[in-house]
Amino acid sequence: MSHEIMKKIYLVEDDYNLRELICYLLTDHDYEVEAFANATSFKERISGLDIDPDLILMDIMLPDGNGVELCRAIKADDKTSSIPVILMSAHADPSITQNSGAIDFIAKPFDVDQFYSRLNKYLN
């Protein structure tokens, strides 16, 4: 698949193997990925200048933070509030994302086809 301009996705996932899989899945579909292993590094990045993600894909349970709260912070900040956020969790209860401002929720483990279709829905 090719895109005229590569869409850029920020991925926040603390599990190394899963982070690797998702990076593969995204780059395989010609998305540009910037991955973060924890909340701290992500927060640092997002608070800086020169941020240009088209979407943020974020795990909820992080060792040093909570994806739901991070999402709320993103949505509260004018600089980042327009960036769509998709939350992911192994707790297959989408209710935890209520009032977080997230655009969607992907339950782990996910079906790869469904994973792509969700992303496409918000990026094209």
Partner: peptide, 14 residues
């Protein structure tokens, strides 16, 4: 348990 399962499932589907 689900985290490695997600990885396994993903790679198997790939």
């Amino acid at each position: 348990l689900k985290t490695p399962l997600t990885t396994v499932k993903g790679y198997l589907q790939v």
